[in-house]
Structures are given as structure tokens and as C-alpha cells.
């Protein structure tokens, strides 16, 4: 039974089309990446999933049933624009938010304490929220979204503004939650995180769905014509006729081949030319490249420059 099913969703604000013809499915135990440039309709899509706005047409199903507010007790949401009550103490804030999600006071309190330990902020639970750093506030909001043990976790840009230590902490937590069978949807601009974490993705640009499916499916649509190379010595082999384009960062080259089969001959040319090769990896294009290529195409190349930020 899929956790989220959107079928042919459309939403229009006045004359601006926010989302059109969006269909996607999120299965339990998966991490789903919702990708797209700024203003492409990600946040609107998320809001329609949790009933904050209603689609103009199309159907939303949560947990196998048409949307109903009851289901919201099984959803945890971390919005992109963070907001907490500034004057409230951390623990009270968490208990309050937990109770709004249907927990009783004592459970909310125990779980809040446990989560604060896990997120390494147990020493600030009695401070006012406004006294904390931004990263800490973000952890609090992260906890607030998870207190009621939701089956669907929706996170809009969960790692933005966090230092690497904390970002890893949150990532690991999400990976643990996936292992427990929760479905996690997150939207982000950080393609490296998506590549590492996500099982499935959907790419939206200009209100429309460009790509969707499991990471493997999406990538298999692209030829394995990308080569990553680390070498020492002459770079003359880069002039090989089978090479479409390359970027050479002093001993670290990213090469796009004209066809998949040309990889071996490029390697042979390098070795013959006396270059010492310490790494030679043939692979599909990175998600970042797929993203940029698709978004560019959706805008038309001329417009793409200013509007795409991956």
C-alpha cells in the first residue's frame, strides 16, 4: 500500500499555474527526493499532500485512503520557513507541538527528552528558544516533526543551514527511520545528498513533472558515457577523437564520451601516451548533471542561465 499517491494534481493561483498534472507515488520504507529549481511548485505540492491547500483538480491519497484530516496524525512536517515560539522554553514547546499531534502530556514529555538526548541538545531544554543558535532551533523543529512517530515524514530543505556534524546527525536519523519502515519525503537543492540518500526521485520544473521513478530507473535512462579520472603526467590523451567534452582540474578530469564503448580506447591512449592513471571510473551522469540538463530543457536554453540553481 503506497503511503502517498498524487494523481494528476493541478493547482492554479490566479493566473499563475503552480502545479500541473503531477502524479507520483511514495512507498513505505523509501526515501523520496522531490527536486526542482526555486519556484517550481515543490512547496505547493507538499502543502496539497497535507491538506493545507486543496488541489483544483486531481486526487490526493494518504495511507491508501482519499485525504482526510485524521491521517495528519500520522504525518510529520518540517516546513521550509522555520518558525517556533521565541519566548517559549524548548521542552514546553516540544510538549505543546507533540500534544497538538495527538500525544498525551506525559508521552510527549518523555519522548521530547529522549529525542533531545539523541540530538545532543538535552542541556538546553529549559532555555528559551530565542536564546539558541539557528542550528539548534532547527534540530528542535526536526524533533517536533518526529515526536508522534509519524509514518510519513515530510521535510522541506531539512539540512539547510546546518554544519556538517549536525547535517550528518540528521541524515543518519533519517536513514534509521527509513529502516523502521517510514516513508520520508524531502525536498532539497543538494544533489549530492539526494544521490546518497534517496531511493526514488521526482523532478519538477515550471510546475510540471519532468522525471520520476527509482534512482536506478532514472539513471538507467542515461548512457554510461561519463568518466572520472585521476592521473599524473601528460594530458595529451584528452584530445582523443572519441571525447565529446572534458573538464580538466589539474590531474582530475571529468570526461563525457561520444559513445559508451569508447572508454577503453581512451584509457589505452592515456597509458600509451605515458600518463600514469591512478583512477579511471566509467559511470552514468551525476544527478546534478541530469537535473541541470532537464531543467535547462524545460526553460529553453536561453532562459536557463539565471533561473536554474541546483
Amino acid at each position: 500500500m503506497p503511503i502517498v499517491e498524487l494523481h494528476n494534481i493541478r493547482k492554479v493561483y490566479g493566473s499563475k499555474i503552480a502545479v500541473e498534472g503531477l502524479t507520483l507515488t511514495i512507498e513505505p520504507g523509501t526515501m523520496f527526493g522531490l527536486l526542482g529549481p526555486n519556484g517550481s511548485g515543490k512547496t505547493t505540492s507538499i502543502r496539497m499532500m497535507i491538506g493545507m491547500t486543496m488541489p483544483d483538480s486531481g486526487a490526493v491519497s494518504l495511507f491508501g485512503k482519499p485525504f482526510e484530516r485524521q491521517s495528519l496524525h500520522r504525518v510529520g512536517y518540517l516546513p521550509e520557513e522555520r518558525g517556533l515560539y521565541k519566548k517559549m522554553k524548548v521542552l514546553e514547546q516540544l510538549v505543546f507541538l507533540g500534544r497538538l499531534h495527538g500525544l498525551d502530556e506525559r508521552t510527549a514529555r518523555t519522548r521530547s527528552m529522549a529525542w533531545c538526548e539523541r540530538m545532543e541538545i538535552a542541556d538546553v531544554v529549559n532555555k528559551k528558544t530565542e536564546e539558541l543558535s539557528k542550528g539548534m532551533q532547527q534540530k528542535i523543529q526536526f524533533i517536533a516533526a518526529l515526536l508522534h512517530e509519524p509514518d510519513l515524514i515530510i521535510m522541506d530543505e531539512p539540512f539547510s543551514g546546518l554544519d556538517p556534524v549536525n547535517a550528518t546527525l540528521l541524515q543518519d536519523t533519517l536513514v534509521d527511520l527509513r529502516r523502521e519502515g517510514k516513508a520520508i519525503l524531502f525536498s532539497t537543492h543538494r544533489m549530492d545528498q539526494v544521490e546518497k540518500l534517496c531511493d526514488s526521485i521526482a523532478l519538477i520544473s515550471r510546475s510540471k513533472l519532468l522525471l520520476s521513478g527509482s534512482m536506478r530507473e532514472v539513471k538507467s535512462q542515461y548512457p554510461r558515457n561519463h568518466v572520472r579520472m585521476v592521473f599524473q603526467g601528460s594530458d595529451a590523451f584528452l584530445q582523443h577523437p572519441c571525447i565529446e567534452s572534458y573538464k580538466n582540474y589539474a590531474g582530475h578530469a571529468e570526461i563525457v564520451l561520444k559513445k559508451e564503448s569508447a572508454a577503453q580506447s581512451v584509457l589505452a591512449a592515456a597509458v600509451t601516451g605515458g600518463t600514469s592513471v591512478s583512477l579511471f571510473e566509467v559511470m552514468e551522469p551525476t544527478l546534478e548533471e541530469i537535473f541541470i540538463e532537464n531543467v535547462r530543457a524545460s526553460f529553453g536554453d536561453a532562459e536557463a542561465g539565471g533561473k536554474v540553481d541546483a
Binding site: I50, M52, R69, L72, H73, V75, Y77, P79, E81, R82, G83, L84, Y85, K86, L97, L100, H101, G102, Q141, A144, A145
Partner: peptide, 13 residues
């Protein structure tokens, strides 16, 4: 202005 409503509206009306 504080944007707290976004979290709240995800559970309550």
C-alpha cells in the same frame, strides 16, 4: 510574521 502557523496548520484547522 513568525511563521509558526505553518507547523500548526499541518495538524490543526
Amino acid at each position: 510574521t513568525s511563521r509558526v502557523f505553518e507547523v500548526l496548520l499541518a495538524t490543526i484547522r
